[in-house]
Write a protein that binds this DNA or RNA. Structure first.
Lengths: 123, 123
DNA sequence: CCGACCTTATCACGGTCGTGTCAATGTTGG
DNA sequence: CCAACATTGACACGACCGTGATAAGGTCGG
């Protein structure tokens, strides 16, 4: 049978995050492992993968943990997302020639790309 | 002729932001006024409006200036936006019964709502 | 020409973020 | 049973955020 979960120290070892940071990352809701009956964190393959890609995300683009946390908030709090979108929408994007319609087209294309993975699939 | 622009102190007066904060808000790209030939900031009606709604945005939802700045970055840096979206997408949203397909449906609906303003219009 | 305004740059200060470390306590397995 | 591990909570520390204040200088209008 598979001992498919790692303890926090083992997870720290294989992901490069410190145990302290694994707890912190959990506290801001980014990677939340299951718990054993006694309350021990159990890191599965999925968690480990996301911890590694999280590190890449922070390195590649210049993003902070709190900012990813905010992106998550945008994802889960629809009213917040709408309010922010509305405010940004009303901005006259200084650089040349980016009309509202123009931007909407690109925005739409982007989401089509993302959603297409599911909507275009088998029914 | 319309003296339709305010100086920074006047803008500060009518928006409630301090002159210092108006410069700071400009530095993070949120509200960027035009400049006079001599380099004076010129706040028009649009800027004033957005400064007021910005204050509401921060008060109503619990958001920081830097976070709105990050949302702006998400809006302008497509590669960043895609990377963050991809990472968040791979998260197994702990709460009950929220399957990936389920979430995609809602996500799609939300954007339909937003994009509908343009796509649903006259063609 | 001069006072009232604008500009940028800098120092300061409390608050939060990211992170380590330590203490006090609970759990596990040989 | 006990050593090795886990848990939460707290203190600490450098770095940056939000904000005010102040300095050194440019611009404007009467």
């Amino acid at each position: 049978m598979a001992t498919e979960t790692l303890t926090i120290n083992e997870a720290a070892e294989t992901t490069g995050w410190s145990p302290r940071m694994l707890r912190y990352i959990e506290s801001i809701g980014l990677v939340v492992p299951e718990r054993s009956p006694a309350g021990y964190r159990l890191f599965g393959a999925g968690e480990l993968q996301r911890l590694r890609t999280l590190r890449e995300l922070l390195n590649d683009h210049d993003v902070a943990l709190g900012e990813v946390g905010f992106a998550l908030r945008l994802r889960t709090e629809a009213s917040l997302s709408d309010a922010v979108d509305a405010w940004l929408q009303a901005r006259p994007v200084r650089p040349q020639g980016t009309t509202a319609a123009d931007w909407l087209k690109r925005e739409q294309a982007k989401h089509m790309r993302l959603l297409g993975l599911a909507t275009g699939g088998s029914s």
